[in-house]
Amino acid sequence: GCGKPAPAPDANKEKKPEVRVVKIANYFPPTHPQNIALKEKFKPYLEEKTKGAFKVEIYDNNQLGSEKEFINGVSMGTIEMAVAGLLQAEMLPKLKIPEFPYLFRDYDHAMKVLNGPIGEEITQGMIEKGTRPLAWSVNGLRAISNSKHPIKSLKDTKDIKLRVPTNSIFIDGMQALGFNTVSMPMTELFSALQQKVVDGQENPAPTVLTSGWYEAQKYITLSYHILGPNIMIISEKFWQTLTPEQQKIFKEAALEYAKYEVDLMKKFDPEALAKLKEKGLQIDELTDRPEWEKAVQPVYEKWYKQYPEFKDIVQRIKDTK
């Protein structure tokens, strides 16, 4: 272990350049596409291209603390990198936009927008907060699971107590769709579903599978109401210690990993659904998707009122082909 004393300095005279450790924090379980992509793409790519100058250590499952904690850690420079959600939106409101309900048509549309100039516009200010964005990837298209009855149309939402994250876009969006929303931390969700404190939750199907929530759920609806984007961030303090060549390799590694992750996700989504079906869940499609898209319009209006510049950005996103 590390407890042993280091060998005396003059034991090997030719000083090897020190290997720098890059800790990457995230909140996904080890089997999630995010962690597979980090392990199979980002880590080997970076370590090989930099000829072993860096060693990547992946800390999955909130091992380095919750999302808020590791974002703070990256911004302080105590954690080098992270794959995070959009918690910083409370400081940088434009980051709310990618989570607007029914904004993106599909994964490719989202990736094209977010890894392009609009993505850069949305992430403005992150570097000043110490967290430099490197690449966007996806957490998945969110589906709605519950233990009460199938949800196929807007008529079926009224009597469902749905857990949502403490995030006004989610709360407003799901309420606009007619659900009774309850916010509670993710850690309490499993027992809350099991004990029927809440009837359902909304998350991408792979998350429902990997977290075991399906044990307490009977139905899952492919509502795909929000595309949960993830953003790979690197500590600005750490970034400034890199040479321009190294910076370039980091950026490339990030884009490679992101592309790989989205590909994995496209495969993982149907696989997860098949497994959920095996576990006995009934899978439903929406019969009235246009109605759902219409129902969430008040969420857009609310934010346009507060930030009129959002309207133009949203329009440009919708126009991106």
Binding site: G65, E69, M76
Partner: peptide
Amino acid sequence: NFDTQIVVQHMMA
């Protein structure tokens, strides 16, 4: 990686 802020940040969490 000594940084007093690490201690406080995780204590709060």
